[in-house]
Design a protein around this nucleic acid. Structure first.
Length: 862
RNA sequence: GGGUGGUUAGCUCAGUGGUAGAGCGCCUCGUUUACACCGAGGAUGUCGGGGGUUCGAAACCCUCACCGCCCACCA
């Protein structure tokens, strides 16, 4: 008979994660776990990972992404799939440039001091460092990176893809250049997309200004008085009775002394302010729209730094905010301020990077015409081609996709893919595709593309698009995208649009699996300023990668945020230690996996029971993992391992393992552990790998098969027996406890009644510290049809026992009453399902006999 | 303003019609040879308020209150 010693391995007495982690990672790497081969005949499973937010700080959110994707990967691999990861390792993130700009700022410099070339070189330098740190975190967690694709960066294959798709979209009329009002950051000197603008409530002012003189005058209301210098018109609602006589006439614009028309436009709300609004075409998006409709001229009054410029007034050269004060002061002097409200709290856009107040600015930018792409993206989800998990988050997706504005993709930055457009001396425009070159003397557009333009191509350009590669043929569309819901708009929608366009209408994923955000222990958002940011590396050092991973997976309910605290991770570490000790104990008792399992019917109740529980757990956990219910799956496996296996099976079997009749149980225990470790491997890869290899002598869980539930190994009767045993054990323990007996104190005791229970009396004697010898009982308990007589050296604590019985009686009476009420309810009897009625009847019978028993016991107490 | 999620034990959260659950924390006992990162036992909830549907509601509907998140061009 084989034993652990036969393959020469033993487990150390204490579990130290650091002792196994780096070794096992290297082992998986050598075994090819982290690579996928398009030529393999296995069924493909592709997982797309979000790009780490490359801000130089490793975030716990990345750890969550990595945990869940690696959970899926490992499970699918064990199920025989060919798994390919598309980890978002690198893209032209604005954040990257931002970090370097901050570094420069601390030296009192800006990127303009360095020049484009040196600046980009500096970003690359920094990127090499931070990228290394992220890879390091992924390795520490044991989550996989396909090393052949990891270095897929913006200066290589991706540039080719970006240029190709730009050209393709341009030719399809989906990319155009236009003068538009865009959000402009006067500090970063760049255009911002809608999602880079954060709206905050700011305390501003709301002033009413009278334009014109006498009869020919109108009062407008504004929060941005300084922009009146660029007004091209005043607008009122076409139906507003107050202003009918003025529509089509002109008023005098104060300070600049220019006559401007009064126009009528339905965009104006009669109820707001004075019902009359100034139209500053070049500095407000609404006004821009109206100006286009009514042919109002665009007057630019500020330069790129937000400084007044070109108004021909005394305000030129003033900062926009200073100018606001000065303009109001001057108008007041002139008696033109009709009303002022200060502070006036209203939403103002801020740059998401530097918090500077955004300045809407007329500017020539490149845009993606979004409507057809957004519609196709919406349809893909509506018609079920792409599934969003959990479905509850679909409305958020639709809300975005259905209301999308055209997407400004040019950025006045230096880090990123340069826009592949060249301008000729006469202003000619040419898009220069891969392998092409512009005529001599032409100049390339200085701007770079929005980061999401390139990262939106992740699902196909990482696989070699526009070439028709074998990777694309096999792994596209990808199986699942695992990411947080916070990135749904930024990244997911872009990937949908870009992929559908590039891949001839085929959406990039079959499933979009959205998880929540990791928050601190009080459910608060983590932020550097709040100081509640969790560093995954720190906790891996302290508790091990498995503990961190299990905590994250256990907390991951679909689409909802999870709170995380050090205590939680400590709890997972405890679980890992428990597994270690249980396996060590099992091996000390000869658990093994050699040969077939003994015939199920030949096994004892305890063995049949644990096999039943195992197979139930396998079936449920598998279904849960397949539906991305990581939290519930982990919870289930955790309780099987700790409660069923450790607390009950091992305890109930100790007597067996100490006896001669243990061979079958040794094989059963080996099997249960073997299967449990496989089941747990996705969530806790390191410890399960170490334990499993030591227990079974197998080479690696990575190459082993996923457990398959065997319904034939589920036996109701054994569950009934063990449940009776559990009841007896728990109740006697409670009795002992109430009687003030120390756990180790042995007392005489014996069983009669329930034969199923008596059959396990030696295990019960062991667990309950009962001695089998002749005695005169001083107390008698009846539990689950079993009579337990014990001797407390002639005397028991009557008061304690009375209290205990009375408590039990109260519970039983309450249960009895609820059952009686239900059964006495005609409506219940008539309409409740038969099985429920039976259940309540049984409950009534049970509680009634309980009450009789307890009442008798109480009467017998002296 | 639009959308959306939440309110269950001290804390963080599961629980989509049939006697309220988990982890951590708390109290008592315990060095019984796998495990004190442990074991045994225990306490704690009119499931946010009010209506309704139902034989039966934490769950379904309505309403109110209070949190939260996302989006947004109210000058």
């Amino acid at each position: 008979m084989s034993s652990p010693a036969s393959h020469g391995r033993e487990l150390a007495a204490t579990f130290v994660p650091a002792d196994i982690e780096s070794r096992l990672y290297q082992k998986w790497l050598d075994a090819g776990y982290f690579t996928a081969d398009a030529s393999s005949s296995k069924e493909p499973f592709t997982i797309v990972l979000p790009p780490p937010n490359v801000t130089g700080v490793l975030h716990i959110g990345h750890a969550l992404d990595q945990t869940l994707q690696d959970c899926l990967s490992r499970m699918k691999r064990m199920k025989g799939f060919e798994v390919l990861w598309l980890p978002g390792m690198d893209h032209a993130g604005i954040a990257t440039q931002n970090v370097v700009e901050k570094q420069l700022a601390s030296q009192g410099k800006s990127r303009h001091d360095l020049g484009r070339e040196d600046f980009v070189a500096k970003v690359w330098e920094w990127k090499a460092e931070s990228g290394g740190a992220i890879l390091d975190q992924m390795k520490r967690m044991g989550s996989g990176v396909d090393w052949t694709r990891e270095r897929f960066t913006m200066d290589e294959g991706m540039s080719n893809a970006v240029v190709s798709i730009f050209k393709k979209m341009y030719e399809a009329g989906l990319i155009y250049r236009a003068e538009r009002i865009i959000n402009w950051c006067p500090r970063c000197l760049t255009a911002l997309s809608d999602i880079e603008v954060e709206h905050q409530d700011d305390a501003g002012e709301f002033v009413q200004i009278r334009y014109g003189e006498g009869e020919q005058s109108i009062v407008i209301a504004t929060t941005r008085a300084e922009t009146m210098l660029g007004d091209g018109a005043v607008a009122v609602h076409p139906d507003d009775p107050r202003y009918q006589h003025l529509i089509g006439t002109e008023v005098l614009l104060p300070l600049v002394n220019r006559m401007i028309p009064i126009i009528a436009d339905e965009l104006v709300e009669m109820d707001f302010g004075t019902g009359a609004v100034k139209v500053t075409a070049a500095h407000d998006p609404n006004d821009f729209e109206m100006a286009v409709r009514h042919n109002v001229p665009f007057v630019v009054i500020m330069n790129e730094h937000g400084v007044m410029d070109g108004t021909g007034t005394e305000f030129d050269g003033m900062d926009r905010f200073d100018a606001r004060v000065a303009v109001v002061a001057k108008l007041k002097e002139m008696g033109r301020i009709v009303a002022e409200k200060r502070p006036y709290v209203h939403a103002v856009g801020h740059c998401s990077r530097c918090d500077t107040t955004v300045e809407p600015r007329l500017s020539k930018q490149w845009f993606v015409k979004v409507a057809p792409l957004a519609k196709a993206s919406a349809d893909a989800v509506r018609n079920g081609t792409v599934k969003i998990e959990p479905a509850a988050l679909e409305p958020r997706y639709f809300e975005w996709v259905d209301n999308m504005h055209d997407w400004c993709i040019s950025r006045q930055l230096w880090w990123g893919h340069r826009i592949p457009v060249w301008y000729g001396p006469q202003g000619e425009v040419q898009v220069v595709g891969p392998g092409e070159s512009a005529p001599v003397g032409w100049v390339q557009d200085p701007d770079v593309l929005d980061t999401w333009f390139s990262s939106g191509q992740w699902a196909f350009s990482t696989m070699g698009w526009p070439e028709k590669t074998s990777d694309l043929a096999k792994f596209y569309p990808t199986s699942v995208l695992v990411t947080g819901y916070d990135i749904l708009f930024f990244w997911v929608v872009r990937m949908m649009m870009m992929s559908i366009f590039a891949m001839d209408g085929v959406p990039p994923f079959k499933t979009i699996m959205l998880h929540g955000l990791v928050r601190d222990q009080f459910g608060k958002k983590m932020s550097k300023s709040r100081g509640n940011v969790i560093d995954p590396i720190e906790f891996m050092d302290k508790y091990g990668a498995d503990a961190l991973r299990f905590t994250l997976a256990r907390g991951a309910n679909p689409g909802t945020d999870q709170a995380l605290a050090e205590d939680w991770i400590g709890g997972s570490r405890n679980f890992a230690t428990k597994l270690w000790n249980a396996t060590r104990f099992a091996m000390m008792n000869g658990a093994h996996v050699e040969g077939d399992l003994p015939a199920f019917d030949s096994l004892n109740d305890i063995d049949r029971w644990i096999l039943s529980r195992l197979n139930e757990t396998i079936a449920e956990a598998d279904a849960l993992l397949e539906s991305y219910e990581f939290s519930r799956a982990c919870e289930l496996i955790y309780h099987f391992a700790w409660d069923d296996l450790c607390d009950w099976y091992l305890e109930l079997s100790k007597e067996t393992f100490a006896s001669e009749n243990k061979a079958a149980s040794q094989r059963v225990l080996g099997h249960v552990l073997d299967q449990l470790l496989r089941l747990l491997h996705p969530a806790m890869p390191f410890i399960t790998e170490e334990l499993w290899c030591t227990l079974t002598g197998g080479s690696s869980l990575v190459d082993s098969n996923w457990p398959l539930a065997q319904p034939l190994l589920i036996d109701k009767n054994s569950k009934k027996v063990v449940s009776a045993l559990q009841e007896v054990v728990t109740e006697v323990r409670r009795f002992r406890n109430d009687q003030g007996l120390k756990p180790s104190q042995k007392i005489p005791g014996r069983f009669s009644g329930n034969k199923d229970v008596i059959a396990h009396k030696s295990a019960l004697h062991f667990l309950l510290k009962l001695e089998e010898k002749d005695f005169v009982p001083s107390a008698t308990l009846e539990i689950a049809g079993t009579i337990i007589e014990v001797d407390l050296t002639g005397s028991i604590d009557v008061e304690a026992e009375r209290a205990r019985l009375e408590k039990d009686l109260a519970t039983a009476l309450k249960d009895q009453k609820t059952a009686e009420v239900k059964l006495g309810n005609e409506g219940f009897m008539a309409k409740a399902p038969a099985d429920v009625v039976v259940e309540i009847r049984e409950r009534l019978v049970k509680t009634t006999s309980e009450i009789e028993r307890i009442t008798a016991a109480l009467a017998a107490l002296k």
